[in-house]
């Protein structure tokens, strides 16, 4: 196979990296929802940690996007 075709296959395979980010976000929000369900008055504190955790989890998925962009354009 040509080198160009293999490069694009590699780029497509990096899309699997987002699966980890999706699972992580699901975990974060499920524990946040069960926390709010047990103790509705803790919602402001939990919201702050939801956003911090979501920011971290998204970045892990975006690292795989960086690899895809490097493969495509460098």
């Amino acid at each position: 196979m040509e080198l160009e075709a293999l490069k694009f296959i590699g780029v497509g395979l990096t899309a699997f990296g987002f699966m980890g980010s999706a699972i992580a976000l699901g975990n974060i929000f499920s524990s946040a929802i069960s926390g709010i369900a047990r103790n509705p008055s803790a919602e402001p504190k939990l919201t702050k940690y939801i956003f911090i955790g979501a920011g971290f989890a998204e970045s892990m998925g975006l690292f795989s996007l960086v690899i895809a962009l490097i493969l495509l354009f460098v």
Binding site: S59, L62, F63, L65
Partner: peptide
Amino acid sequence: FSLSIRLAANMTA
């Protein structure tokens, strides 16, 4: 590295 790539990748994406 993780600190810098996190910010740059979020903005780029």
